[in-house]
Design a protein around this nucleic acid. Structure first.
Lengths: 235, 235
DNA sequence: GTCCTTTTGTGAACCGGTGCACAAAGTGAG
DNA sequence: CTCACTTTGTGCACCGGTTCACAAAAGGAC
């Protein structure tokens, strides 16, 4: 096998492409289950909800894995995308904050099924520490550094209240973790080289509300005036 | 109030800007609580985690609400952004699927605090129907259309298993809802004019894993040729 | 009033990403 | 073999969004 992936894959897959690879992977897994051997860019694009030119360009960043006139080999493409995303290795994930959201995440099947293993649940509340959730014992936040070190945790999910998130992030970073998925509604400040992805449930709703308002405005005519902004942050 | 915001606000705030407005709003609320009367674009930008030129351009799409040499009036800006996002009105939200995630969402404080009111919880599982969660009675999915109509639900949150999501979406759309927040890991197909936002927890982790792999690769030297695609594996 | 300082609002260059459209590469029939 | 057909991979034009950098506007000192 030749190394002809010179400029294409060697450096830098566009961020937008990376964000879509998991989508393709999911569609491909569905096809593999249904026994399809090959798939065209058109069919895969439809299944993933994107346009086929974009899909082809995305895949071309990984290398030239298709066959003209035929399409892509489903199994081979699954392997290539998985490898590119780093899903061929086992990732130990720790979830900090075992409130409603933390519990939901711990039980979420989508994690385990893709090379992610929830290796620890931590919380500050003595009431929660010791509970068994999703086959794991909830440990006290004091154990954070020890747990990260001993279990090789490389990704931390923050599901704490907003006020606690920054200090937990600081400790986690100090312990050597460089990838954080943050569900707390705060802007975390972390050193260069630490990746943070933020999921903010209320922001998504606010964006929907904006568009919904536009749609109804167009029919009725005008906005209203009232209400103010309460404040409450907790997960 | 005059309608002289001709081209600036009259039509089309960039999507990227809309997605950041909730961020600014949150930062501003924090500042209002701390008693700040005005804020410069620089300070607000830092608090929201963006650069100040971008923030100024974003705000300029709403109108010219700042004062040169001074900054922005915190209260006034909060009002303007809230109004623009449609948060000055009350939105009735229904959550379909009361598993771990649905429960977490029902209890999520961030919704209620911003003009969103969880008006209904629905599930297909008779085991769950009748439960009381977050002060609400879980109703059977058969009631979906009636509940939407009677309670004026305009936004639906889908937290069902993947297999059920499309058929629930179809019913919800048929009932007149045009805004859906989808947590199920499937690509929904809906008619023109229906807005869908998707939150996919496992995709976020996969993106993190990609970057994490890059970081560790860089230190260890990257993948060897043998790891590219073992010849032993047949296609 | 003039001058100096601060900070907004925006023109313009730049950049990453999208989508069209087509040549190149493959398959299969005859 | 040639011809017809399929589907990939990509050059290129386009577009939304970001960033720079600065003129314009406001306030304060005098």
């Amino acid at each position: 096998m030749i190394r002809r992936l010179s400029q294409a894959r060697e450096r830098g897959i566009p961020e937008a492409t990376v964000a879509r690879l998991p989508l393709y992977l999911r569609a491909l897994n569905g096809m593999a289950e249904r026994g399809l051997a090959t798939v065209s860019s058109e069919d895969l694009a439809v299944a993933a909800g994107v346009n086929s030119a974009k899909l082809r360009k995305d895949l071309s960043h990984l290398g030239s894995y298709g066959t003209r006139g035929v399409g892509y080999d489903v199994e081979y493409l699954i392997y290539q995308i998985s490898r590119e995303l780093g899903l061929t290795q086992d990732w130990a994930v720790a979830i900090v904050g075992v409130g409603n959201l933390g519990r939901a995440l711990a039980n979420y099947g989508g994690f385990v099924s893709r090379g992610f293993r929830v290796a620890a649940l931590l919380d500050a509340d003595p009431e929660v520490v010791g509970d068994h959730i999703a086959g794991l014992n909830v440990e006290h936040i004091d154990e954070l550094e020890a747990v990260i070190r001993r279990r090789g945790v490389s990704i931390v999910v923050l599901a704490t209240p907003a006020v606690a998130a920054q200090q937990v992030a600081d400790r986690v970073v100090a312990a050597g973790v460089t990838s954080i998925l943050n569900f707390a509604p705060v802007v975390l400040s972390v050193p260069e080289g630490v990746d943070i992805r933020k999921v903010d449930l209320s922001i998504e709703l606010q964006i929907l509300a904006f568009h919904e308002q536009r749609k109804t405005d167009r029919m009725t005519g005008g906005p209203t005036m009232a209400e103010e902004w309460p404040e409450a942050v907790d997960l």
